[in-house]
Design a protein around this nucleic acid. Sequence first.
DNA 1: GGTACGATAGAACAGCGTTCGATGATGTGC
DNA 2: GCACATCATCGAACGCTGTTCTATCGTACC
Lengths: 231, 231
Amino acid sequence: MARLQSREGRRRVSHSMESVLTEAVALLDEAGAPALTFRALAQRLGGGVASIYWYVASKDELLDRAADHVIGGVLADIEKLPVGDDPIDDLRTMALTLFDAIVDRPWLGAYFMRNTDVQGNSLLLYEKLGRQTLRLDLDARQRFHAVSAIVGVVVGSAVDMGQEPPQEVLDGAVDREEYLGRFAQRWRELDPEEFPFVHEIVDEFDGHDDVDQFRSALELTLTGLRLQAGG
Amino acid sequence: MARLQSREGRRRVSHSMESVLTEAVALLDEAGAPALTFRALAQRLGGGVASIYWYVASKDELLDRAADHVIGGVLADIEKLPVGDDPIDDLRTMALTLFDAIVDRPWLGAYFMRNTDVQGNSLLLYEKLGRQTLRLDLDARQRFHAVSAIVGVVVGSAVDMGQEPPQEVLDGAVDREEYLGRFAQRWRELDPEEFPFVHEIVDEFDGHDDVDQFRSALELTLTGLRLQAGG
DNA sequence: GGTACGATAGAACAGCGTTCGATGATGTGC
DNA sequence: GCACATCATCGAACGCTGTTCTATCGTACC
């Protein structure tokens, strides 16, 4: 795709929507949201800054499309999943797949399903989730709310967990374990009379597993949903 | 508090942590996250930009503290609530109070409970929520997960709903109703064969009430929790 | 009254998203 | 083979941002 030619002057590089999004996501994955700048992206693509504006109208649109690009991968994974007997089991599997993608990409939460005009994959994923609720004994409103609830749990948990850690963790100077441990330590020093709950759960918090935490939250919602659908 | 004096030169203005946070939150509430800049804040306080740095070390810390400032109000509201017989009913009320505060402040979701060192109110709120779970028949891990789940639902729903609308809505040129209606219309034009679920719920989506949506999501989680606690 | 310190502020800096105008490359009609 | 419109690219500039530097003011204390 890259045809470059020059009489003697500087190179011209030709991109494509695909390559722009791929490199944008790569930047985000490698160094987090602040690393995605038009200048950094242009350098990676070997071109000029303004060229990117031929593909997207703004940084917001770039992130919308980058998000949808990632969701495309998630969607492909989800479509590979076997269809089970129990729609709620299928919902759980799909939610977990989505969670895995978001938890490593805190920026994704804020842009998921933000503008379905340019986010065809997100809409398809939404449809895929919703289709499971069609197999349950619910009315339209309950179905709408059910999918919203599941997406809410996924996004909420992922945002809560995946927020950009301070620089020291990103650098690798301090690992996540130790970072959490510091907070735990601070919590342990609180007055037990004033903070009985914090003391109750501090050991659980210290060194806890994000996926476990998410699974539990999801399970509560799915249990509620199952009950609503009549067992 | 504001003592100003000058022989003939320019005024000097004295602030306070309180006034800095109050004005910061006011800016955020009036015009959204992008409106909070150090220059805008300084002008509002009638002082210079660099003065703000005497109170906070960075914009991140400013937002951490602003978030906690708002949560302080939420906490006060929650402490006014009567203690009921059913801890789950109390959890619902508290979650709704928290939701109300976050839904109008999308930025809050991202900064809530981010750094408990400077967010004493958030920690107190977390404790308040958690204390309800102490009245339930659960183990420590379940309690930890329960509170995480509730916070996740609140933040997830609020972030999903409250994301900064495009400029036209913020200006008031287009109201929220119409903005949602546009998406609904686009959805109605999709192929019903390919998007059966979207068609099923599009009327629910169109003109839906955010609070209803959140209540439903919360109810699913609370139902699951009640079941987990043994009815 | 000098002096230390709490608090304020203007100016400058690097980096950001975005816009502008110019220019290279490409495909079409003749 | 050549003009021409269009697609795509790019460097430079603009206004804005968070942040830092350095200088200064005002107050309380000995």
